[in-house]
Computed example of a mutant assay.
Amino acid sequence: MGKDSKAKDAGGKGKGKAKQAASGADESASKGKGKSGKAASDGLGTCTYVKARHILCEKQGKINEAYKKLQDGWLSNGDKVPPAEFAKLAAEYSECPSGKKGGDLGWFPRGKMAGPFQDVAFSTLIGATSAPFKSTHGYHIILCEGRKN
């Protein structure tokens, strides 16, 4: 099962960037962008650190419920979810200790997070929200807040 199927398995029916962000765009980012300048235009590049918030749920139904609230509030209109609103949902739904801090994971480097979580975190555009996806810890939604080298 590849990254694409993991994001879709969680039942995410997001539109546009949110769905695209979880689709494994990291594959092209990890190959480098050369002199084409594309890294600057797509916001992904080969950054070393990402700042993110997340919602973690053990059950797929619960993460889908949280994602539906994001869809109804912002994603269905093509809007970006404001970090403060994402934080409220994380506090309500997340079963991770970070939920008490609005899902804030702060800045973390490549290699710190496990497989699918890292792949999605580093391939989600700044300001975008991923579709639900599964990792060894449960089901997640990620909001990417920043990137740096």
Rank of each mutant, 00 (worst) to 15 (best):
G43D: 10
G61L: 15
T48I: 04
K101P: 00
K69S: 03
Q118F: 06
S28E: 05
K35R: 11
I126P: 07
D119V: 11
E145D: 14
P82K: 06
Y93D: 01
A90E: 03
P83S: 05
D4G: 02
K3E: 00
S135Q: 02
G14M: 02
P109C: 10
A84P: 00
G37Y: 01
G37I: 10
W74Y: 10
L44V: 06
G138F: 09
L75F: 08
Y49K: 11
G24N: 08
D104E: 09
P82S: 11
A18W: 04
G14A: 11
S135M: 06
H137P: 01
K112A: 14
A131C: 06
Y93C: 02
A21I: 07
S41K: 11
G73D: 09
P109S: 11
K100N: 07
L105C: 14
G14I: 05
P109N: 07
S135H: 07
K35G: 04
G115V: 07
V50Y: 04
G32Q: 05
F133D: 03
D42G: 00
P83V: 13
S5I: 05
D4K: 04
G34V: 02
S76I: 13
A10E: 12
G34T: 02
L89D: 03
C144N: 14
V81W: 01
C144F: 05
G102D: 07
F133G: 04
K88Y: 03
G16I: 01
L56A: 14
K8T: 08
D4S: 05
E27W: 00
V120F: 06
K80E: 07
E95I: 12
S130V: 08
C144K: 15
G37F: 00
T129N: 12
E95P: 08
W74P: 03
I141S: 08
K148F: 12
L75I: 13
C96F: 00
F108A: 15
R110L: 15
S94L: 11
G73N: 10
Q71M: 12
H140R: 15
F117W: 12
K100M: 04
C57S: 14
D119W: 03
Y139G: 01
K19G: 01
A87P: 02
K31Y: 05
A91R: 14
E92G: 00
M1S: 04
G37E: 03
G138C: 10
L70S: 10
D79H: 01
G37W: 01
K80H: 03
F122N: 02
P132A: 10
T129F: 03
C47H: 12
K17H: 07
K6F: 02
T129A: 14
A40D: 08
G106K: 12
A131F: 00
L143F: 04
A52I: 15
P116F: 01
A91K: 13
Q71C: 08
H54N: 15
K62P: 06
N77E: 09
G12C: 06
A66F: 03
G99T: 03
K100I: 11
D104G: 09
I142V: 15
T46R: 13
G99P: 02
Q60R: 15
T124N: 15
M1V: 05
K35E: 13
W107G: 08
G34R: 09
K8H: 00
S41E: 06
K33C: 03
D26H: 13
C57A: 09
G73W: 05
A52C: 15
S36W: 00
Y49L: 12
K17V: 05
F86H: 07
H54I: 13
G146F: 07
Q118I: 06
K69P: 02
K148S: 15
D104K: 05
A66I: 08
G32A: 09
V81M: 08
